[in-house]
Simulated assay, not measured.
Amino acid sequence: MSTTSLSSAVMTHPVREAQAAALAARLGLDGLARDPDPDGPPSALRTALVAWAARAAGADHHLVVQDDVAGPPELLALVAGSVARFPDEALVFYTNWHARNGAAARLAALAGAGWVRAVPEEFAPTLAICLPVGTADAFRSFAAETGERHDDEVMAAFLRTTGRSALLAVPSVVEHIGTSSINGHAAQGIRLAVCPVGAADARPLLERGWVLEEVDWLPYMRYGEGYLRPVGHERDADPRRHPRWTEALPDTGLTEGRVRDVARRHRPGGAAAEVGRLFGTAFADELWIHCLLLGRQAEDAARRHQAPPPGSGPAGAAAARVRTAALSTVGPAGLPPERRPEVTPEHTALLTAYADSAVRRGGLLLGPAPRTRAGTR
């Protein structure tokens, strides 16, 4: 790997400045980027522009993290190793568990990948993101022309102009803390990382894990219901629309009857009844079918990329633990925000096993193995 010169900044508002300073000190980050107009209308972008301008002289990459995250002491080393591997990419080290990008990262984890290309039409997660300095400068110029206040939306729009969305780290070493939001996202409730693991498990996947470049059609959940992002949805007249899985399924070559037949034959009745008792029968149905479709897509991706299953290959046991982490978040993330605080560790264990039972049956929706192509880089 080549040597990388990396600078960093924590973007913050005065109400969280002490928290931001503690984060910077704990992780060895270079300093704080303060909101230049703290009494003005809420705007994450206003502070982000300060943060992206705060790169050190001579740095070739710049990391920006937000003040409401936690990370391991090894964060800078993990980022430096990642940008040495992918020097020209926008790299994201935190992905929300309930977004389309979260579903993409979860699918990649189930397939055994270390990185996945972000969904282009959705906001780009910016809680912990690293850019080459030339890209950072271009983003600042692009963002100066917008009236948008959400830096994650502007980042996604900027990356679309480059023709290449961000690479998402599948293992999540950065975690969101708290539920408050200066920028108006508190209604989304508990927002956590999709595949939370420690640095030791993240490192082999970040350094050697294969890259899932094409997610194909993508199952995801929001507010207790299952949805499906069709292939090429970014070109749709309304790419932010959320098609229900029953609506979008015909474009995948599957039928609702086939999916429901697998669920009828293979869903564990006792677990389904318990999940239904706790969170509603409709949620239990939607979650299992969502995970069945996720499992189908994960197995298909692994086949196409000739990837070893999690637990084998160069990442070994780390990939298996990242897979378990991805399964542990799918149930809580799929609940409506007001129900997520009800989830206890016992509920999480139940939901994880229930999700796993569906993911493992996803291969029943696959036909013969397709012709493979290389997927590592």
Rank of each mutant, 00 (worst) to 15 (best):
A21P: 01
A298V: 09
G375H: 08
T146N: 11
M155K: 11
P14W: 08
E74L: 06
V359K: 03
M221V: 12
L168A: 11
D35V: 09
W52I: 02
R258N: 07
T348D: 01
G311V: 06
R149L: 11
A33T: 07
L23T: 00
A272S: 09
Y223M: 13
L218C: 01
G226K: 05
D251R: 15
A156M: 04
L75E: 02
H233K: 10
T344Y: 03
V173T: 11
Y227G: 07
A44P: 13
R34C: 08
T146R: 15
A355Q: 02
D30P: 04
N183M: 10
R265V: 12
F139P: 02
A25V: 05
V322R: 00
H233A: 13
L127Y: 12
G189T: 04
W245A: 00
H266D: 15
N101G: 14
A186I: 05
V262H: 03
L218I: 09
T372M: 12
P308I: 05
Y220N: 04
E89H: 13
V116D: 03
G257Q: 15
V330Q: 06
H185N: 12
R235Y: 15
H61C: 11
R229Q: 14
V69C: 02
Y223E: 13
V231A: 15
L76D: 01
R222L: 15
Y223N: 14
D201I: 02
V79Y: 06
T252I: 06
P341Y: 14
H242V: 08
A113I: 05
S172L: 07
W210H: 14
R85W: 02
V50T: 09
A109N: 12
